[in-house]
Design a protein around this nucleic acid. Structure first.
Lengths: 193, 193
DNA sequence: CCCAAATGAGACATGAATGTCTCACCACTG
DNA sequence: CAGTGGTGAGACATTCATGTCTCATTTGGG
């Protein structure tokens, strides 16, 4: 039973499989189960033993990504201290999940009519609230809507994840490049022009 | 012969089909040809008459998106005047193509090993050159690499396209939100802190 | 050393999407 | 008022990914 995850010697690392799957699927969503398996370095049969099917795989991806991002949001304590610092903490804490997030962000219509993960909406609201707080406390510009800033954050995370994976951006630079660009864009200028 | 495109009364608007296909596929890349057809408001048979198959459809998408983006880059005259203004012109000129770009940006591994569109690389280089020029002329910060700024631009275009399509961002605000965030992030501060 | 558990490779059946075709219908043309 | 060209709907065969299974092999534990 590798059911609850870690441990269980000799068994496939479920999370590792999901991470490589996310990386592959985020840039070629039509990839075959066989390709997903190969990308994870396992056999297709084994992949099927862990995930009943493609749907189950994608749902597991959603779940893990959401769980990790939620943990990141939690640990970043968005409501405390300087909003800019809170944003930095968020980017730092979510760094390990960028691969999964890249997938969830770009493919966000995974299951047709389905009530788009309420969990995601909740996190989205908390992040937008951070930007709103920054605006109210005077540090962030108010001419860029909080919800747009949240969307921009997702876009930059996604772009950063891909840049790192494709070798155009050093992994060590990811956090700085992302936070600086976003903060630079949403911080109010001390002086006009 | 609707071969060369526009005109031809009574015939399906090829570009319109491609645009709606891009919008759909960018958020659910596994969508069926039938769904693509319905999204475009035409029958599956008609879709097949215009595009030999799924591959042909995607390639046509690539082609049109690249062509439109190239035209935008061209008309923006990136090497002239203030780099910030050039960037504004680019965002403005590329606005009609955001739907297509959103697809091409997120799904950029469309055909396995294939030489990633050299056309795209060329445009990418020109855009990175714009940011580099901005850095050399002193207007843009140099601690964010030009290639990262280019990637960030793509990410923001993609995020903006989706925000507009999903109703979270007014179409009229798209250009302002995108350019202001990016320019705010890459412009050097007149005063420290 | 032997057993249990998990894996990889492959064969196989199934099903869904694909691609092709026919036919009736409508719009515009001459 | 035919005639032409494009279309939608549906039937159909086919392909290919999927999902299930078996079996040999490897790995780690008792």
């Amino acid at each position: 039973m590798s059911h609850l995850g870690y441990g269980c010697l000799m068994t496939v690392d479920r999370e590792q499989v999901l991470r490589s799957a996310a990386t592959l699927l985020s840039r070629r969503a039509t990839a075959t189960m066989d390709e997903v398996a190969k990308a994870a370095g396992i056999g297709r049969a084994t992949l099927h033993r862990h995930f009943a099917g493609r749907d189950a795989l994608v749902r597991a991806l959603e779940e893990l990504g959401l769980r990790e991002f939620e943990a990141a949001v939690e640990s970043a304590r968005l409501h405390e201290g300087d909003p800019a610092d809170a944003l930095r903490r968020l980017v730092t804490a979510s760094t390990p999940a960028t691969g999964l997030l890249g997938f969830l962000i770009s493919e966000n219509q995974l299951f047709e009519g389905e009530h788009v993960n309420e969990g995601w909406d909740r996190l989205d609201a908390r992040i937008a609230a951070l930007f709103r707080r920054g605006q109210e406390e005077g540090g962030f510009r108010v001419d860029l809507s909080a919800s747009w800033l949240a969307e921009a954050l997702y876009g930059l995370i996604s772009a950063g994840a891909w840049s790192v994976h494709s070798g155009r951006l050093a992994a060590n630079d990811y956090q700085y490049m992302t936070t600086e660009l976003l903060l630079g864009g949403c911080t109010r200028r001390s002086v006009k022009e």
